[in-house]
Design a protein around this nucleic acid. Structure first.
Lengths: 327, 327
DNA sequence: AGAATATAGTTGTATCAAGCAACCATATTG
DNA sequence: CAATATGGTTGCTTGATACAACTATATTCT
C-alpha cells in the first residue's frame, strides 16, 4: 500500500517531467508561438478573463510582481495588450488584449489546440476523458496542497472578489443605474421609467455625500460596479435613515457580499443614531426579504404601485435602532 | 461530438497551464531545490539512468546541445556530476552523479515526492490511479504526435540502443570476458576455468586483429560491452573461418541485435571468401541454435566435454560459403 | 587508403526572463 | 492626520536559452 503510493508518486513525477518537456517549458520560447511560456500564459489568461490587473496576473501565474510588471510592459510594446489606469483605484491598471493580441491569442489557441487534438484524437473517448480528469484532479490537488502549506501567503480573500468601496467613485452613478436597469428589466420588465428614476435619484443623492449622514457603498471590481447600497439620511427627515439602491449583481448572489453590504450600511445607521431605517422594495424578492428580516427589518406596509410601467406590489420595511448593548 | 472534443481540448489545456505553474516551471528556480527546472530534470535523468551522454540528455530534455553543454559544465562546477571521456568513442563523455549529486538527487526526490504525496494522498486510490493514467497517456500521446509531425527530426533509431562497433576498443577484452563469465556462470555454473580460457583466447586473438581475415564486432553502450562476435580467420587454417565469442547480454535478448551481429560477421566471412565457417557451442542454447540454423549452419558433431569444470554436451556447427547469386 | 560526411561536444555572441530590494503613488485604517 | 497596506515600477544582477561557427573524432563510400 505504502509501496504502491510510492510507486504511483514516482510514475506521476516521471510523467510530469515528460509533460513539461513536451509542452516546451524548458525551452526559451514555446514552439509555434515564438513567445516565452510566461507570455503565452499571460495572453491566454487575459484573453479568457477579458480584463485583469497585474496583481491578479501575478497570482495566477505564480510570478513575482516585478516580473509581471516587465512582462506586461513588453506585451504592451508589442501591442498585444493595452493598459488602462483604473478609474476607481488609481493604483491599478486594467489589462486587456488589443486587436492584435486577440489575433495572437487565436494563433496560440489554434496551435495549442491542434497540438492537443493531434495528440489525443487517436485515443478513445474514454481515454480522453481519463486524461482530462487525471490532469484536472492533479492540478487541483497540487493547488490545495500548496495553499495548505503556505500560511505565510494564504489565498487572498479578496482574490478575484470585488471590494467594498465607500463614497463617490467615477462611474458609480452609471454603474449602479445600469445594474438596476439590467436586473429589473430581466426580472420584471421594468424599462426606461424605472432606469430614469434610479439615475435621477442617484444624481440628486451623490452630491449630498459630503454630509456625514449620507453614505454609499459599492462593490467594485476592475472598474465594474457589481453591487451597491446607500443610506440617505436626509430625504425622509425626522432622524430616519433611508436605505436605497441595494442591489447585488446576479453573479454574486450567494457570495455573502450582499449581507456584508447591508450590515455595513446598518452599522453606519446605528453609528449615526438614526431612530429608524426605512426601505421600499417589491413583493417577490424573497431572498432580499429574508435578509432584511434577519437584520431587524419588519414589513410595515404593502400596496399596489404602477409607477414603473408594471403593476407591482410595493413593500415598505422598517428597522428600529437596536437598544444599546443588544447583540 | 466535435464540440465535445473541443471542450475536452480546452479543459486539458487549462489544466496543463495550471500544472506548469504549480510545478514552478515559469519560475527561475524550482521551489525547494534552488535549481532551475532544466537542472533538476538533468539531475533526475542522469541519476535514474546511471550514466548518460550530453546528446542523450539533450534528446531527453528537448534542449539544444549548446544549452546542454553549458548546463553540464555548470553542474560539473557545482560538483553535482562528473564527466568521463568515453574510452571507446573519444567524442563523447559519460556523465554521472557525484556523491554530492546523489545527495542532491535525494533532496530533489524527497521534495518532489512529498509535494506529490501531499497533493494526492488525500485522494482515493481510484482517483490517484486516474491521475496517473491520465498523465502518462497524455504524455505518450504528445510524444507520439510530436514524432509523427517532425519527420525532419525523427526519433533516432540509435537512441538509447548500443551501437555495433568493429575492431579493438579499450576495455573490450575485459568487457567480453566478464560478459561470458557472468552469462555462463549463471546459466550453467562455469567458473574460473572458463573465464580464464575466454580471456586467454581473446588476449591471443586481439593482437591479430590487424590482419584482414580477422575481425571483431562488439555491442557497446556508454563504455559497457553488451555483446560481441568475432571471426578468427587464422586458427583453424585451411581457409576456414572460426566464429568465436558470440554473446549478447541478457538485457538485449530479443532485440534483434544478436541476429545483426551474426549476419554482419557472416557477411564478412563471405566477403573474405572463406570456404566454411565453424563454431563450437553447447547443447541447450536453443535460441542461439535456431539463429545458427537460420543462417546456414548445420550441426555436424556432438560430444561430451568436461573442460569447463562441468559436464556439458559440446556441439560443432558448420556453414559453407553460399553459392554466388544465392539469396 | 583517402575523401566526404556525420556526430559529440565547445565556444562566441546575443537575448532576455526572473527575482530581490528599494522605491513611488495611492488607498485604507485608526 | 499619521501609520500602514497595496499596486505597480525601476535598478541591479544573474544566468538560461538559442543560433552559428568551430574542433575533434567516427563512419561511410568509393
Amino acid at each position: 500500500m505504502t509501496d504502491n503510493l510510492a510507486g504511483t508518486i514516482h510514475k506521476i513525477r516521471s510523467a510530469s517531467r515528460s509533460l513539461i518537456r513536451e509542452l516546451g517549458f524548458l525551452n526559451k520560447t514555446i514552439a509555434g508561438t515564438g513567445l516565452p511560456g510566461s507570455y503565452v500564459h499571460a495572453i491566454v489568461e487575459i484573453g479568457t478573463t477579458g480584463e485583469l490587473t497585474a496583481r491578479e496576473l501575478s497570482e495566477k501565474l505564480l510570478l513575482e510582481k516585478s516580473t509581471i510588471s516587465r512582462l506586461v510592459r513588453s506585451l504592451i510594446e508589442r501591442e498585444e495588450i493595452s493598459e488602462n489606469r483604473s478609474l476607481v483605484d488609481a493604483r491599478q491598471k486594467n489589462l486587456r488584449l488589443t486587436q492584435k493580441g486577440q489575433q495572437t491569442l487565436t494563433k496560440i489557441n489554434l496551435y495549442a489546440a491542434s497540438q492537443v487534438r493531434e495528440a489525443i484524437s487517436p485515443l478513445s473517448l474514454n481515454k480522453q476523458q481519463e486524461i482530462l480528469t487525471g490532469l484536472t484532479d492533479y492540478c487541483l490537488a497540487l493547488k490545495n496542497s500548496r495553499q495548505k502549506n503556505s500560511p505565510s501567503a494564504p489565498t487572498r480573500i479578496t482574490e478575484n472578489l470585488p471590494r467594498i468601496r465607500t463614497g463617490y467613485l467615477p462611474g458609480i452613478i452609471g454603474g449602479i443605474t445600469s445594474l438596476h436597469a439590467g436586473y429589473y428589466s430581466r426580472l420584471v420588465g421594468f424599462s426606461d421609467t424605472f432606469e430614469t428614476a434610479v439615475a435621477d435619484g442617484l444624481a440628486r443623492f451623490v452630491p449630498r455625500l459630503d454630509r456625514k449622514q449620507n453614505e454609499i457603498w459599492s462593490l467594485e471590481h476592475r472598474d465594474k460596479f457589481l453591487g451597491s447600497i446607500a443610506i440617505d439620511g436626509e430625504d425622509l427627515g425626522e432622524n430616519i435613515a433611508h436605505l436605497r439602491w441595494f442591489i447585488v449583481d446576479k453573479e454574486l448572489h450567494g457570495s455573502g457580499l450582499g449581507k456584508k453590504l447591508l450590515q455595513g450600511a446598518l452599522q453606519f445607521c446605528d453609528g449615526q443614531n438614526f431612530r429608524e431605517t426605512h426601505l421600499w422594495t417589491f413583493k417577490g424578492l424573497d431572498v432580499a426579504r429574508k435578509l432584511y428580516e434577519e437584520n431587524g427589518f419588519s414589513l410595515v406596509e404593502e400596496y399596489k404601485g404602477t409607477q414603473w410601467g408594471k403593476q407591482m406590489i410595493e413593500q415598505k420595511f422598517v428597522r428600529p435602532l437596536p437598544l444599546k448593548g443588544d447583540v
